[in-house]
Design a protein around this nucleic acid. Structure first.
Lengths: 154, 154
DNA sequence: TGACAACTATTGTCTAGGCAACTAAGATAT
DNA sequence: ATATCTTAGTTGCCTAGACAATAGTTGTCA
């Protein structure tokens, strides 16, 4: 039958599954190392990788409200409130009540936030380039495609 | 010069880097969804994905000590102590002082732990097969290779 | 032997996210 | 207009991991 490499056959079965060396472990490891590396890279700026994600989403996107950010980064509203507290305390971000809808709180980067932002990007680029040494652009595109396919399978 | 697809050229630069759609976001998302899916799958057994990882490492490997587990799953020793507390409270794992080295604590799965373990594997297999629908074995192998190359670049 | 270094596990403290309850504000329907 | 429903953000409580300090144990070496 030669089903072993058909795309439609089940990949794993309980007999042969090896939890310790599999894809899950690799994904966790890579993600963790990337976060740790970015944390170290950003440490001199007193900014964490988690904060970087929020700032980047805020800086690049049109979604200026807190709840928009929550959906964008799949974050709990409560966690987001406190995250914004931290960023506001650091003077990187400002809460601005939306006049049209007074429930909504729009977020703006402060001058200081905008000033450090290029350094954040620089740090992220450094980290990714380090972990992607030896990859061609095609390979990265393919890696991204695989991950997108997994997400589409959700 | 046509350097754009040479493997040795830097992949990203600060001008073109798009933090919101890149590899980091994809990796985080995939990892998170896998964990959430496994959590849901294991919920009826009252076991979390994090606990599954420990149990799997313990069941499959020869590393029976707590500190061995710490290294194996890059876990904090303090966190590991409390993790084992939880597993012990659930009756899945037993602490056994090593007679040869009385600092060391060896871990054994209880009869109950061994009894549920096949169901854990079954759950994990189900989740991975779901997220890998449509993948050939070759594609999975290549995905794993990419991730291993990233780790090797650390 | 005794001082000292290295290792194992535990505990306390801190940080941060998840969940639920709550308040305020807008939207909708009667 | 008012009652009801939905949405946005905040707060309190709980859980869990990270880090640091500690106690007990082993190995080393003078």
């Amino acid at each position: 039958m030669e089903t072993s490499s058909l795309a439609t056959s089940a990949i794993y079965d309980s007999k042969t599954f090896e939890p310790r060396v599999g894809l899950g472990r690799l994904l966790s490891q890579v993600k963790m190392e990337l976060v740790e590396a970015l944390d170290r890279e950003l440490a001199p700026l007193d900014i964490t990788a988690a904060q970087y994600v929020i700032l980047a989403t805020l800086a690049e996107g049109p979604t200026g409200s807190a709840s928009g950010l929550c959906k964008g980064v799949s974050y709990d509203p409560g966690a987001m409130t406190r995250m914004i507290d931290r960023l506001e305390r650091k003077g990187l971000v400002r809460r601005v009540r939306c006049p049209a809808d007074r429930r909504r709180i729009n977020l703006e980067m402060t001058a200081e936030g905008k000033a450090v932002y290029p350094q954040l990007i620089e740090s992220a680029v450094t980290v990714f380039n380090r972990y992607l040494r030896g990859f061609s652009r095609d390979e990265i595109a393919q890696l991204e495609t695989y991950l997108k396919r997994m997400l589409a399978n959700a």
